[in-house]
Amino acid sequence: MEADVATGLWRRLFGRKGPEPLDPSRTDLVVVASSFDHAEACSAALSRATGFDADAPAVLRHHLRIPAAHRERVCEIAAQDGYAPDQHLDASDAGALAPLILRRVQIVDALHCSQERSRMAGLAQRHDGFADGWDALQPGIAAGPRE
Rank of each mutant, 00 (worst) to 15 (best):
V105E: 12
R103N: 13
A79H: 06
F52I: 00
C75S: 07
K17E: 14
I107S: 02
R11K: 10
D135C: 04
G18E: 02
C113F: 02
R119S: 12
A124Y: 07
L111Q: 13
R126M: 15
R103K: 14
W134N: 02
R73H: 15
L22N: 00
L13Q: 04
I66D: 04
G122Q: 15
R71F: 13
P57H: 10
G18L: 01
P145N: 12
K17I: 06
L102M: 08
G133M: 08
L111V: 12
T7P: 00
G95V: 04
A56K: 08
L46N: 01
V108H: 04
L60C: 01
R103T: 08
Q106T: 14
A91T: 02
A131D: 11
S34L: 10
R126Y: 12
A39L: 13
D135T: 10
L13G: 01
E40N: 09
A33S: 13
V31A: 13
C75I: 09
A136R: 06
D128E: 15
W10Y: 10
G144D: 03
D86L: 12
Y83F: 14
A58T: 06
R146P: 04
G140A: 15
I77E: 03
V5N: 03
D86G: 13
L13N: 05
I107E: 06
A3L: 05
L29G: 00
Q138V: 12
T50N: 09
L123Y: 01
G95I: 02
D4E: 10
R61I: 06
W134V: 03
T27K: 15
S34Q: 14
A143N: 07
A110K: 02
M1P: 05
F36S: 12
I66W: 04
E76N: 00
M120G: 09
